[in-house]
Simulated scan of single mutants.
Amino acid sequence: MGAGAGEPGGVWLRAGGDRPRRERLTRERIVEAAVGLLDAEGVPGFSMRRLAARLRAGTMSLYEYVSGKEDVLDLALDAVLGELPPAAPDTPWRAAVTAQAAQSRRVMLRHPWVPALVGTRPLLGPNALAASERFHAALAATGLDDRRVAAAVSAVTGYVDGYVLKEALWRARHRDPAAEADLRGRVWAHIGERADAYPALGLYARLAAEGATDFDTQFRIGLDIVLDGIAAQIGGAGSAAVRTGPRGG
Rank of each mutant, 00 (worst) to 15 (best):
Met1Val: 14
Gly2Ala: 06
Gly4Trp: 02
Gly4Ser: 15
Ala5Arg: 14
Gly6Thr: 09
Gly6Met: 09
Pro8Tyr: 02
Val11Arg: 10
Trp12Pro: 05
Gly16Glu: 12
Asp18Leu: 12
Pro20Ile: 11
Glu23Lys: 15
Arg24Thr: 15
Leu25His: 06
Leu25Val: 06
Arg29Phe: 07
Ile30Gly: 09
Val35Cys: 02
Val35His: 04
Gly36Phe: 11
Leu37Gly: 08
Leu38Ser: 07
Asp39Ser: 15
Glu41Cys: 15
Glu41Thr: 15
Glu41Val: 14
Ser47Trp: 08
Met48Trp: 05
Ala53Lys: 14
Ala57Glu: 05
Tyr65Ser: 01
Glu70Pro: 03
Val72Ile: 14
Val72Pro: 02
Leu73Ser: 04
Asp78Val: 01
Ala79Asp: 08
Val80Thr: 07
Val80Glu: 05
Pro85Gln: 15
Pro86Leu: 10
Ala88Phe: 01
Pro89Asn: 03
Thr91Asp: 03
Trp93Asn: 10
Arg94Ile: 10
Arg94Pro: 02
Ala95Val: 10
Thr98Leu: 06
Ala99Pro: 00
Ala99Lys: 00
Ala99Asp: 03
Ala102Met: 02
Ser104Asp: 05
Val107Trp: 03
Trp113Lys: 02
Gly119Ser: 09
Thr120Ile: 02
Pro126Ala: 12
Pro126Val: 12
Ala128Cys: 12
Leu129Ile: 11
Ala130Trp: 06
Ala138Thr: 13
Gly143Ile: 14
Gly143Trp: 03
Leu144Phe: 00
Leu144Glu: 00
Asp146Val: 04
Arg148Gln: 04
Ser154Ile: 02
Ala155Asp: 01
Val156Glu: 10
Tyr159Thr: 11
Tyr159Val: 02
Ala168Leu: 10
Ala168Glu: 07
Arg171Lys: 08
Ala172Leu: 13
Pro177Ala: 13
Ala178Asn: 03
Ala179Phe: 13
Glu180Trp: 11
Gly185Thr: 10
Trp188Ile: 12
Trp188Gly: 00
Ile191Arg: 12
Ala195Cys: 08
Pro199His: 15
Ala200Glu: 15
Leu203Glu: 13
Leu207Asn: 01
Glu210His: 12
Glu210Met: 12
Gly211Asp: 01
Ala212Asn: 03
Thr213His: 01
Gln218Tyr: 01
Phe219Pro: 09
Val226Asp: 10
Leu227Cys: 08
Gly229Arg: 09
Ile230Tyr: 03
Ile230Trp: 05
Ala231His: 00
Ala231Asn: 00
Gln233Ala: 15
Gly235Lys: 00
Gly236Ile: 08
Ala237Met: 04
Gly238Ser: 14
Gly238Leu: 00
Ser239Trp: 00
Ala241Gln: 04
Val242Pro: 01
Pro246Val: 11
